[in-house]
Design a protein around this nucleic acid. Structure first.
Lengths: 294, 294
DNA sequence: CGTCATTACGGAATGCGTAATGATA
DNA sequence: TATCATTACGCATTCCGTAATGACG
């Protein structure tokens, strides 16, 4: 097999049609250049240059091979650039998981931020519940998750992205709607309730259980998606505790009421990632956004 | 710059994900392979493999570079093949000139023969009179000509392709048509004659002058192309001496009569080429067709 | 005899293989 | 302790540069 030096030598001679000038251009002396060409011709198996001791000329095979040699050298020069870009995280692929609810709030601005800071990084988006995200982050199928606590702090690092309040979703015309004030816990004790799944929406389930005195007999549905929940409320199947961002869903026939029993903004959304970051694009992103890693 | 060996080494390790097996596949020992990869990584400027002493894994940059490395090696393997094919004359470009008259006879079968024997050789065709062909063959703009004598035997080699008779073209209904016998020279002495140009159709001009007792006063037109000649005959401007292949033109209103004053087949068509054959495809063709060269 | 490519030759650098080392489960 | 990659070292090969040769106008 020939070498890149031989190719570069051949190109120089083919362009100069003069060994001396070509050698000068390559910052070397004629003899090694002459030998390079000879070796190249031997390994190609065809005469590439016709030198009749007064002028140098390309053979037909040489013309064709010159083309290939140029292509080869150009490719060889670009290849490391691409690899370095990826290694530095300036290009590549970032696979991001998000929960349905986070898609309503923080996802858009986050993607905007990423494409501004890392314009050559492609983004793969997958809607997944927190549990699925955690699993995918562990196997490496996902680079970054937008998810809710809890998660194993030994495996995952995280950054708090967003806090919001809990509100009560009620059908339009419901007796609690239009009161113009926060709803007290004891006003809810007889309401049919659409509740979060303790498995697939454990974060909300735990939060609601912890905050409000739920009568389990009132639970008429158990679902895992906020969207489903609000749809059921619109269908007048009951009321539901949802994060404030659910108001952005734009579903008709539902109103959202503040809750006096849930002060502040207890609903957290975190960006989480595997501590052993494999993807340079993720490393770059975390640095760019100051999601400090240690 | 990296080397092709380094690329091959990297590809082997990337495919085996094991230095030992990769080295075995490459018929070498592990240490030099290990060093090759290190050098490659240094010249690429990025870590390509992650070896944590128990398993070897591609980095993201490595995945991208693997692709480039494969492309690069594949290109490097094909490049000499193309060059060798051209050097051997099995592919390439053959530029062939032909006279209008030869286009009617030998050109078709010749092209058929070439494309059968040298299917990967492209052919450029140019209709040129003999004089133009000779000039183009000297400057190297043409590889092969289908032309008429004479030409300089020191510069050109040739092969007789085709002989044909001279016939007399007359308008339909002419007094000489339909006699059912050869026409004698003395029957032509008062006919208006369409004659060849002594410059641009010198071969025919000389041949006619040499063979027939031309009365220059009878010449009503002087033209260089056989097609023009026959068209003028059809327009009843006179009669003309043309090669037998002109019968293939299929022009209406013309008849072709044998001539007793021109026995045999005096009209020659040669394949001619520059003795210093530059184009391997031509060399190949001449050998294939036994147009002996010395 | 001047130009320009090639061959001759000596020294430096590269790159292999064997042996030793290091790191990990 | 076994496995597997890496470093250490000695030797062969490769490849450069200088010098000499050869071919051509």
């Amino acid at each position: 097999m020939f070498t890149f030096d031989q190719l570069a030598g051949f190109i120089a001679v083919a362009e100069e049609l003069h060994f001396g000038r070509a050698a000068e251009r390559l910052q070397m002396t004629q003899p090694p250049l002459s030998r390079q060409i000879q070796k190249l011709e031997r390994s190609v198996g065809a005469e590439l240059l016709e030198r009749d001791n007064r002028k140098v000329q390309l053979t037909h095979a040489g013309v064709a091979f010159l083309d290939e040699a140029r292509r080869l050298l150009a490719l060889a020069e670009r290849a490391p650039v691409a690899a370095r870009r990826i290694a530095s995280g300036r290009s590549g692929l970032l696979r991001i998981g998000f929960t349905a609810a986070s898609g309503l709030s923080i996802l858009g601005p986050l993607l905007e931020e990423i494409s501004t800071r890392l314009p050559d990084v492609d983004i793969d988006l997958q809607e997944l519940v927190t549990g699925e995200q955690i699993q995918a982050l562990q196997t490496g199928e996902l680079d970054l998750g937008l998810a809710r606590p809890p998660f194993d702090r030994d495996v995952f690092d995280s950054h708090l992205l967003y806090r919001e309040s809990m509100v009560l979703a009620v059908p339009s015309g419901h007796r609690l709607a239009g009161l113009g004030r926060d709803i007290d816990n004891d006003e809810l004790k007889d309401e049919p309730l659409i509740m979060h799944s303790p498995q697939q929406a454990r974060y909300f389930y735990d939060l609601v259980i912890r905050t409000f005195p739920i009568q389990h007999g009132n639970v008429v549905h158990t679902v895992s998606q906020i969207l489903t929940m609000v749809s059921l409320v619109a269908a007048k199947r009951g009321v539901a505790f949802v994060p404030h961002s659910a108001t952005a869903l734009g579903i008709q026939g539902v109103e959202f009421l503040p809750l006096s029993g849930s002060p502040g903004e207890p609903v957290e959304l975190h960006a989480i990632w595997n501590r052993k970051v494999a993807n340079p694009a993720l490393r770059r992103l975390l640095t760019e956004l100051d999601y400090q890693m240690e």
